[in-house]
Design a protein around this nucleic acid. Structure first.
Length: 873
RNA sequence: GGAGGCAUAGCUCAGCUGGUUAGAGUACUUGCUUGACAUGCAAGGGGUCACUGGUUCAAUUCCAGUUGUCUCCACCA
């Protein structure tokens, strides 16, 4: 038998245990028709940034489920997400390039630049992946690289062509969100809105050949350079006479019409709206309806272009200042109001996005969304907790077409090919070099796809699709997606409609949603606040098991949790407790034959087995419902409170006594403890495995052991009840001794007066060991001068004559009596209620009756004691 | 404007399909070097379960409203 170190030191063994699992290839799984698959998809870590708590949480939850299912005999597979096409990397590399070498990506050229990005990802990806290992997960860089290069990109082309042929992808000139800093288009989901204080400029537009004018109000005066109309509401009497007239655009001098359009809200602002089709989505629509000219006034960096006349070359904000000044000088500015409004910013770089008309690729969402809505409505995919399906449906029902093209280089390049000679465009899975129409050379679309386009294919592209692989047939649809609620729109929704469209089936049956990890003040952890906590630091200090425990417990699914160092500390303390329990058991296992059987069990054995069995049942139920925190809490309570604080203490006398009694105790200890370790293993794999390797157990590794199963043969309700009765009295004695400040070392005889002497059979040792009893006398003559304790079904007497203060004793007894009477009144009230008797379940009425009896007996005992004491006063 | 969450001990939070003497961790008070563990053991104090109604024999739990608070989505030029 191996010995355990004296001190719990996770750093000493976690790496070793990880290697042990790797060698045993416990993380690998292949399709195997004799076992049911269980597959989990989890989101990607951002390999360029810091590993943060969110990843740690994803990994932990995923790993708990995988281990649990594997221990139940499932063939469990984990499909790790990767940051395969995240544009953050590209932007980071560009930034470094600019700072360190003064170069842009265009200086390097596409090929060289992409190599740089790969190098970057390799360096940082390895770092992150190695860190993730510490959480007990295995992530494989080679696999990530493969899926980016080969499998995934093939799937992307396949899907793109597929959707294009069905008319679900189109290229069009539309208003999109443009990030001038990332210089790319963004999807709606990538824009975050924030209330910002701003101004409302009221500007006068003169009517041509008249001294009349209209006043418009705007928050973005610089966009007036692109104005091609002013709109009013068709029913607005104030302006009816102006519809069809021509205005002169101030500063620019362009002649623009006044048009009537339902879009205008008569009650907002002045009731006149300047129309800038190229820089506002609503104006764009108005422009289309009235065949207005479209004038783009900015370039990709949000600098005014040639269409802006004398403002060309100015940044959008400089242009704004200049224009406002000029308007004022020209007498066009009526007034300026303070105005707070929502401003969209790029979620990645925080730069204010510029709505701009631009030629981009879009996915037509309506038909895809319909299927995706139905799948969730009909329960093919279930969100856990269920309320997130509302979030999902709400979004899906109001979804706009998805802008999928990005003006970047890192990512999957759109498989569209153009012929500059004849204007032909070809969409194809294979590269096209010559134009099928005129034979001229073709060039591929420069734009790449949104990261989430390829991420959406993850559940099947990683399994070999579009080939019909055994993996795909075996593992798809997957079982669970584990992720935070912040990426429901980005990823979850898109995986669902992509899976439905390409595979005809939902990608997963359950979506387990967790909350965000916040700091101790409830703030979101972020780089800019500097409040991010590095999981690796935590692991170094407390161990991976402690971190996992912290992340898995103490909050309900889908709710945010706050990170407190104290909580990790308490988790570590629990690990230490388990460690020491193991040490205790190991140093007491002396028997040759430690095989467990139910023959000859003592009441305390039957009690712990019964409780153990209950926990097995409960934990299994909880885990099957993804109630991970609840399950872990039950394992924790069982191990610490029931097993360590009670059972171990109860069996110590037998262990030390030796002989067959001791042997029996050893067998039960080993059986229950190893079972508890198995239950704990999914949550705290390292410590359980390390201990397992030291224990003389039949199964070679905890990771491959079978998860405990509820066993009716281990249910001993009668002796369990009796044992708890004894425990109640022990607690009562301890309580009294503590109140009277009797030190543990001071022993005294214990007299028990009871109508159920059989309850206390063989319990003498327990009172001696745990309640400071010298000898235990049942139903013998009670000496004078004792402290009396009234318990359910028994009165206990301890001769502490000199410590007795009659008055305080009486006060205490009367207080107890009052409490018991209160309880009795409550129970009787219930039982007197005819409605309760007739409508409540019989078992409940029965239980209430039993309670009534119990309280009646207690009250009788207490009254008798009080009377006796009064007599002595 | 639309949707959703949260409100339980000093603090952070559990409490699953209504019935418990309402729990945990932490903090606090007291006593313990009890032969695994002071990262520990034992005992204790501390809660009108936000408020108001409703459903029910029974509401911390279900429903409606109110207040406070947080989040997401949409968006008004």
């Amino acid at each position: 038998m191996k010995e355990l170190e004296k001190v719990y030191n996770p750093q000493e063994f976690e790496d070793r245990i990880y290697d042990f699992w790797q060698k045993g290839r416990y993380f690998h799984s292949e399709p195997d028709d004799s076992r049911k698959p269980f597959t989990i998809v989890i989101p990607p870590p951002n390999v360029t940034g810091q590993l943060h708590m969110g990843h740690a949480l994803d990994e932990t939850l995923q790993d708990i489920l995988i281990r649990y299912k594997r221990m139940q005999g499932f063939n469990a597979l984990w499909i790790p997400g990767t940051d395969h096409a995240g544009i953050a990397t590209q932007i980071k590399v560009e930034e470094v390039l600019r700072k360190e070498e003064g170069l842009t990506r265009y200086d390097l050229g596409r090929e060289k630049f992409l190599e740089r990005v790969w190098d970057w990802k390799k360096t940082y990806g390895d770092r992150i992946i190695n860190q993730l290992k510490k959480l007990g997960s295995s992530c494989d860089w080679e696999r990530e690289r493969f899926t980016m290069d080969e499998g995934c990109s093939k799937a992307v082309k396949e899907v793109f062509v597929n959707l294009y042929e069905k008319g679900l992808i189109y290229k069009g000139n539309r208003i999109i969100n443009w990030c001038p800093q990332c210089t790319t288009a963004l999807s709606d989901a990538e824009v975050v809105y924030e209330e910002q204080p701003g101004h409302f400029w009221h500007i006068r537009y003169p009517v041509k050949n008249s001294d009349e004018f209209v006043t418009i109000a705007t928050t973005r005066p610089e966009t007036m350079l692109g104005d091609t109309a002013v709109a009013v509401h068709p029913d607005d009497a104030r302006y009816a006479h102006l519809v069809g007239k021509t205005l002169i655009l101030p500063l620019v001098g362009r002649e623009i019409p006044v048009v009537a359009d339902e879009y205008v809200d008569q009650d907002f602002g002045t009731g006149c709206v300047k129309i800038t089709p190229c820089h506002d989505p609503n104006d764009f629509e108005v422009g289309k309806r009235h065949q207005l000219e479209e004038i783009l006034i900015m370039d990709g960096n949000a600098v005014i272009n040639a269409n802006g006349g004398k403002y060309e070359g100015l940044d959008r904000y400089e242009a704004r200042r200049q224009i406002v000044r000029d308007l004022e000088e020209g007498g066009y500015l009526v007034r300026v109001e303070e105005h707070t409004h929502n401003v969209g910013a790029c979620y990645r770089c925080g730069c204010t996005v510029e709505p701009m008309a631009s030629s981009q690729w879009f996915v037509r969402m309506k038909p895809l969304a319909e299927k995706a809505i139905r799948a969730v409505r009909e329960g093919e995919t279930r969100f856990v907790p269920d309320r997130f399906s509302k979030t999902y449906l709400n979004w899906m029902e109001n979804v706009h077409d998805w802008c999928i093209s990005r003006q970047l280089w890192w990512g999957h390049r759109i498989p569209a090919y153009y012929c500059d000679a004849c204007g032909e465009m070809v969409i194809a899975k294979e590269e096209v070099h010559t134009c099928p129409k005129c034979g001229a050379a073709m060039r591929q679309e420069e734009d790449v796809l949104d990261t989430w386009f390829s991420s959406a294919l993850w559940p099947f592209s990683t399994l070999g699709w579009p080939e019909d692989t055994p993996e795909l047939r075996y593992y798809y649809p997957t079982s669970v997606l584990v992720t935070g609620y912040d990426i429901i729109f980005f990823w979850v929704a898109r995986m669902i409609f992509s899976g439905l469209e390409q595979m005809g089936q939902v990608p997963f049956s359950h979506v387990l949603i967790h909350g965000l990890v916040r700091d101790s003040q409830g703030r979101k952890m972020s780089k800019s606040l500097g409040n991010g906590i590095d999981p690796l630091e935590v692991i170094r200090e407390y161990g991976a098991d402690a971190l996992r425990f912290t992340l898995a417990t103490g909050n309900a699914p889908g709710n945010d949790m706050r990170y407190y160092p104290e909580r990790v500390e308490s988790s570590r303390n629990f690990a230490n407790k388990v460690w020491n329990a193991a040490r205790f058991i190991l140093m007491n296992l002396k028997e040759e034959d430690l095989s467990f059987s139910t023959a000859g069990l003592r009441p305390e054995d039957e009690w712990i087995l019964t409780r153990y069995n209950d926990v097995v049942r409960d934990v299994t139920e909880n885990l099957d419902k993804f109630e991970i925190g609840l399950a872990l809490q039950k394992v924790y309570d069982f191990i610490w409170d029931l097993f360590c604080d009670w059972y171990i203490e109860l069996v110590k006398p037998r262990l030390y006594a030796g002989g067959e009694e001791s042997a029996m105790a050893q067998r039960v200890l080993l059986f229950v403890f190893s079972g508890a370790l198995k239950m704990l293993h999914p949550f705290m794999p390292f410590i359980t495995e390390e201990i397992w390797q030291a224990l003389p157990t039949a199964e070679e590794a905890c990771v491959t052991a079978r998860f405990p199963v509820y066993d009716p043969a281990l249910r001993f309700s009668e002796s369990a009840g009796r044992m708890e009765h004894v425990m109640e009295t022990i607690k009562a004695i301890r309580n009294r001794r503590a109140e009277m400040n009797v030190p543990h070392s001071r022993k005294a005889s214990l007299y028990i007066e009871t109508a159920h002497p059989e309850w206390f059979e063989g319990a003498a040792l327990f009172y001696q060991k745990l309640a400071g009893a010298e000898q235990v006398l049942i139903n013998s003559k009670i000496p004078e001068g004792t402290v009396q304790l009234v318990c359910d079904g028994a009165s206990l007497y301890i001769p502490f004559a000199e410590l007795i203060d009659l008055e305080s004793e009486l006060r205490r007894l009367n207080k107890e009596l009052e409490k018991a009477r209160g309880e009795l009144a409550r129970v009787e009230g219930k039982l007197k209620n005819q409605g309760f008797i007739s409508k409540a379940p019989a078992a409940l009425v029965e239980a209430e009756n039993a309670k009534k009896e119990k309280f009646l007996a207690l009250i009788a005992e207490l009254t008798a004691s009080i009377e006796k004491m009064e007599g002595r006063r």
